[in-house]
């Protein structure tokens, strides 16, 4: 047997082994969570039936009732995006490789941000509801935490991607730290900043739809409320409103991006 044949055989064996592992993992999963395939398959038509029969047609009688939650959600988005972008901007400058004043600051901030980001958003929201009570305040703070976790990292990444030569040139003229930021880094970082901030606004709109589920305000609370009361046709209306809102916001931010960048 020559070498090429052996290699081919090895590769085949490897492929077979990974396939077997995959099948074993699937079987274990099915067994572990008592996943009943027949019940699942029969559940899919039931689910579609539920969506298209119980939810249709959307109840359009009291559309004006939903104006308030929509405005709430938009206001949530604006306030949370602006506040978190300001905080994240400061953190990002302290956290990025090329602008961090001290390595210790960088490592500490990086771990804090990574903690904020990796604890699920809904958990933060639920804890904040315990702290501040039901209402808009925990929702805003949860969104701000989400924004800080998300934006600091992305801002820092864009700052790190900046062209080094401009920074070196400014440094060579004897510029101070702040002058360096102002003249070399901020102008290059601006497009990234605007683009990510707009993206953050889109995310807050989606997220505030979810916030209502833990009692933190926004349009999500209407979804939860109508579903708890089994008024599925009203739920359909809220979901449609939400889809339209998300699409409009995405369209508007896309237009702004095209104009600015």
């Amino acid at each position: 047997m020559n070498r090429a044949e052996m290699l081919a055989r090895q590769r085949k064996a490897k492929r077979l082994l990974s396939l077997l592992l995959f099948v074993a993992a699937t079987l274990f999963s099915v067994w572990f969570i008592e996943f009943d395939i027949m019940e699942f398959l029969s559940g899919i038509p039931l689910f579609l039936n539920f969506l298209f029969v119980d939810f249709m047609p959307p109840n359009l009688d009291d559309l004006s009732k939903y104006l308030q939650p929509v405005l709430d959600t938009l206001a949530f988005g604006v306030v949370a995006t602006v506040l978190s972008s300001v905080i994240a901007l400061i953190i990002a400058f302290l956290m990025a490789h090329n602008t961090s004043p001290h390595p210790v600051v960088r490592v500490v901030l990086r771990s804090i941000i990574s903690f904020i980001r990796n604890v699920p958003f809904l958990v933060w929201a639920a804890i904040l509801v315990v702290l501040f009570g039901v209402g808009t305040m925990p929702g805003i703070f949860a969104l701000i935490l989400l924004g800080i976790g998300f934006l600091s990292r992305l801002y820092a990444e864009s700052i790190e991607e900046i062209d080094k030569h401009a920074v070196e040139a400014v440094e060579a003229t004897g510029a101070t730290y702040l002058q360096k930021l102002r003249q070399a880094i901020i102008p290059q970082f601006m497009p990234g900043y605007i683009s990510w901030t707009l993206f953050m606004f889109e995310i807050t709109i989606r997220a505030s739809a979810i916030l209502g589920i833990v009692g933190a305000g926004g349009i999500g609370s209407q979804i939860k409320l109508t579903m708890d009361l089994f008024q599925y046709s009203s739920t359909a209306t809220v979901v449609v409103i939400m889809i339209i809102m998300i699409l409009v916001v995405e369209y508007v931010t896309q237009r702004i991006r095209e104009r600015l960048l």
């Binding site: 008592e34 559940g43 039931l46 689910f47 539920f50 989606r206 739809a209 979810i210 579903m227 939400m242």
Partner: peptide, 21 residues
């Protein structure tokens, strides 16, 4: 894609009952 995941799961739970399925 526009409907957030959480909403999908909420709908699925309402149709199938609580649980992993």
């Amino acid at each position: 894609r526009t409907i957030p995941t959480t909403i999908w799961v909420l709908l699925a739970v309402a149709s199938m009952g609580f649980g992993s399925m």
